[in-house]
Simulated scan of single mutants.
Amino acid sequence: MKTTVVAGNPKPGSRTLDAATHLATELTGSAPDHVVDVITLGPGLLGWGDDAVKAAVDTVAASDLVVFASPTFKAAYTGILKLFLDQFATGDGLRDVTAVPLMLGAGPAHALAPDLLLKPVLVELGATTPAPGLYLLDSTYTTDTRIADYAQRWAPVLRSTLRTEAR
């Protein structure tokens, strides 16, 4: 199984990246195979044809399980993550990828954002999203049990959708 984390935070090495990496590790029992810290792709995200962006897109598309993570900005996921997701073909850009939407925020007001805002985009790109998205408080995700609880509940469901034999 090939696991990837995609973090769409405007700050490199962010808490968003940390939480997503922790979630991927809890879901699979090992560190992710690949990490895409989207902000490090720079201005190549603003167009098409950038080699680094294409390599990141190819890595994500070839993955079995991908945690897509964003902080909550203005009640939605970030523009930097949207720029990256726009690089995938509609309908089949994430075909055969099982995706987990993850968002972090300062308070519970946007707890439905992963399911209402991020999950539909991932489905539009062809991803399978059999579990609900996860929303974490950025101030407590390292001390509460939300990631472990989510992994215990949803890892079997996510594993059942993986098509590793096709890769």
Rank of each mutant, 00 (worst) to 15 (best):
T98D: 08
T98G: 04
V100E: 07
V100L: 06
V100S: 10
P101V: 06
L102N: 02
M103D: 10
L104D: 08
G105V: 13
G105A: 06
A106E: 08
A106L: 14
G107N: 09
G107W: 06
G107V: 04
P108E: 10
A109I: 09
A109Y: 01
A109F: 03
H110D: 14
H110L: 09
H110P: 00
H110G: 07
H110Q: 03
A111M: 07
A111Y: 02
A111W: 04
L112A: 14
L112D: 08
L112N: 05
P114G: 11
D115Q: 05
L116Q: 12
L117Y: 12
L117R: 08
L118R: 05
K119A: 12
P120T: 15
V121F: 02
V121E: 04
V123A: 07
E124T: 15
L125D: 14
G126I: 13
A127E: 05
A127W: 03
A127L: 08
T128D: 06
T128G: 03
T128I: 10
T129E: 01
T129M: 01
A131I: 13
P132R: 08
P132G: 05
G133I: 03
G133L: 06
G133Y: 10
G133F: 01
L134H: 02
Y135G: 00
Y135L: 00
Y135W: 07
L136I: 02
L137S: 01
L137G: 02
D138H: 03
D138L: 04
S139F: 03
Y141T: 04
Y141N: 04
T142G: 03
T142Y: 02
T143V: 12
D144S: 03
T145L: 04
T145N: 07
R146T: 12
R146Q: 13
A148I: 08
A148D: 05
D149S: 11
D149M: 13
Y150A: 06
Y150H: 08
A151C: 09
Q152V: 14
Q152P: 01
R153F: 04
R153Q: 15
A155D: 09
A155I: 15
P156L: 07
R159M: 11
R159A: 13
R159Q: 11
S160E: 00
S160R: 01
S160A: 15
S160Y: 05
L162E: 14
L162Q: 09
L162W: 12
R163G: 14
R163S: 12
T164D: 10
T164H: 10
E165G: 10
E165V: 00
E165T: 13
